[in-house]
Structures are given as structure tokens and as C-alpha cells.
Amino acid sequence: MNGASAARTVAVIEDLGFTDVVSIPDGESRHLHQALLDTPDIEVYSPTREGEGIALAAGLWVGGRKPLVILQNTGLMEAGDALRGCGIGPSIPLLLLVGWRGYPGAMAGTMPVDSAYPYTEPLIRAWELPHRRLMSDDDLGVIGEMAAVAEGTSKPAVVVYGYGFTP
């Protein structure tokens, strides 16, 4: 697997009407981050840490925008209180694209296993957040599916990407 195309992913994000992206790039999302920066109709904000980013995205949504949050699984772990307080608790329907650091190595049998790998999906389940996996272009429909779930439930929803994005 090589991941999803950044250009096709941006097209999906635009089609779904996202106005802003709050993104702290990681190694797997860097091509998507750049493609978003090159997209004039989408504003990209890069905070210094992920909890800050979720609060910023919540403010954007409360103000009438439609933000998407892109963060690594390590950032999701850092952002727990913000996710609780600015997403789950107040029923703010944020869609999170979460990079699954450690997944490719674990699938390839590389040792040692990245300690971020095994906790990612259990953590998302612990938050009781619906999620789907995005591993290639074939899975791009899950972004719209989870965006609809977030809006339908008024709660955050998650798309986990395992192999990052190609240029």
C-alpha cells in the first residue's frame, strides 16, 4: 500500500464543503498538508500543538465555518482534554483525520513496534468516537461517510489513515 493521493483527497475535502483545515503536519500527511496550502479556497491553520488546534477548530465551527482537523495519533493522545471539552462534551461535530504512526511498520513486521501503534484504535474506541480506516484511494469515501456521521450525531468522528498521502 502507498496511501491515498493528496490531490484526490483535497478534491474530496473541497466537495464536502470544508472551509478550513487545522493541521499539524507529520511525515505521512506532509503531501496532503502542502496540497491544502496550495488550495486557494481552503484556509489552513497550523497551531503549535494538537489540543490547541482542536480548540481553534471548535471556535471556527461555532463561528459558522466548517473545519477539518488533521493530526497524528500522537497528537490525538496529547489533545485528549481538548477533544473532550471542545468536541464531545459540547456536541461539536469535528471531523478528525488521524495519522496512524507505527501502522506501516507493524504491518511489515518491523521491530521494535512503535508504541504509538497499538493504542490508536483502542483510544478512539475509548472516546466512543466512530471511525473508519483510509488506506488508499479506494477508501476515500470514508471521509464523506464520517463527515455525515459527525454532523448527524453532533459529535466528533475520525478517519484514520495508515499509509499517509502520495503527492
Binding site: 490547541e52 480548540a55 471556535g59 471556527l60 465551527w61 465555518r65 481538548a82 471542545c86
Partner: peptide, 12 residues
Amino acid sequence: HASDFGLGLALA
């Protein structure tokens, strides 16, 4: 995170 939320709201 109050000012982060405020920043997002001000931008929106």
C-alpha cells in the same frame, strides 16, 4: 484553551 477557541471564533 479559551484563547485558542477565541482565536478560531475571531477568524470565523
